Computed example of a mutant assay.
Amino acid sequence: MNKDIKSIAIVRLSALGDIVNSAVVLQFIHEQFPHAKIDWITEEVFAPLLQAHPLINNIHTVNLKKLKKQKSFTLLKETITYLNSLEKFDIVIDIQGLIKSSIVSRIISKNTHGFDKNSIREPLASLLYKTSSSIAYDENIVKRNCFVVADALGFEIDDKMLLNKSAVFPHATYPHAKSDKKNVVIVIGASWESKKYPKEDVVKLCNELKQNCLIIWGNEEEKEDGMWVCENSQYAILAPKLSLVELISYIGSCDLLIGNDTGPTHMAWAQNIPSITLFGPTTTRMIYETPKNIGIKSPSEVDIFKIDKNDFSINKIKIETIVEKAEELLNGF
């Protein structure tokens, strides 16, 4: 381990769930390098999630989505100039492993570390790293994130450390309404339609649970679906509009979260809240399962090297199975 490292940059540009699952490394880096400054480079839209983190020295943002959409040479030049202006870090670690993230990393510094060509979705990205790590692409995503960081810095993050982790994000207590019922957050939205559990089944789930089922939403379409669920179940309650920071507190103050493979669902694991993640076109590889954070996979076969976004098998997950696991978790296993 190189204890002379004083400045570290983490590159994880997107998406929400991936940033949540990557941020766990901060506490382990700090344990090994308590005096090192840790900066994070991310897409502008996700900066608020990391803004108040006590272990992050600075957050640097890019807007690659805007750059791709506008195809502006001026914006490209401004982005490169900004990245070149950052301090020269002792090491830059690209957790994302895409060509875009490797380019960002290399602009910042030549002393970059990432996944090798056999461990990465876009092998060309590995050409821009000075050093690299080898780990199977189909390995658990949280373990991959931890391994590439720990390997770059010369220490190990093991299962015991992950099972005993502190909450990943600081958060305030959210004042859920006082009730004799448990507060169960239910995530209904996702980036892919095939990841969503049918709203009709969400209604049945709420009616079976008979708890305060708090339906969170992130856009108007999800809000409409959430309102429909609330209109059809006396146990469903529509959550208020929440910022990313408020969402962390909202989830961190609940008794259980049930959701699909998406960012808010991963926040429950991050904050050490019991959770059930429902999988259709993806697999339990996307979460770090613990006794109180479990995954339920649909019967479909998944090729993680070629994800089928038309796999709607999540709707085959039985409500009884979810309710059984939920009651176990709500009753303390």
Rank of each mutant, 00 (worst) to 15 (best):
K160H: 11
I322F: 04
I29C: 06
N63W: 02
N293D: 06
I304H: 02
L330W: 07
I237A: 03
E222N: 08
I8T: 07
M161A: 15
Y235H: 12
T262G: 06
F73I: 14
H171E: 01
D311M: 07
R285S: 12
D138E: 15
M267H: 01
D94S: 09
Q32G: 00
M267L: 15
K196W: 12
F169L: 00
V229C: 05
K178N: 06
F312K: 09
T74P: 01
N63Q: 14
K66Q: 14
L50F: 00
E31L: 06
M1L: 10
V168P: 02
E87V: 06
G17E: 03
A125V: 05
W192P: 02
I237Y: 02
K117V: 08
E208F: 07
V323P: 01
H113D: 05
G295V: 00
S313R: 12
L329Y: 00
L50N: 03
I103S: 01
V148C: 08
H266Y: 08
K204R: 13
N140E: 04
Q211C: 00
S300Y: 11
F305N: 14
T282I: 05
Q96C: 08
E43S: 03
G189P: 12
E87Y: 04
D39S: 14
I103A: 10
Q96G: 08
P198T: 08
D90R: 09
C213D: 00
I294A: 06
D158H: 08
K306E: 13
P170L: 14
L49S: 09
L330R: 01
V203I: 15
A9L: 15
F305A: 05
T74W: 11
F155I: 11
E231D: 14
I103E: 07
S85T: 14
P175D: 10
L13Y: 05
L238I: 10
G332C: 12
K143D: 05
S105H: 12
N212V: 02
L128Y: 04
S191E: 13
T290V: 13
C213T: 12
N293I: 13
I188V: 13
D308I: 12
L238T: 05
D158R: 03
A326D: 02
D225W: 14
R144W: 09
F33S: 04
K195H: 12
H53T: 07
A172D: 15
G332A: 11
D90S: 12
Q271L: 15
G154F: 06
Y250F: 15
V202R: 00
S275R: 00
L247V: 04
V229E: 04
A152Y: 04
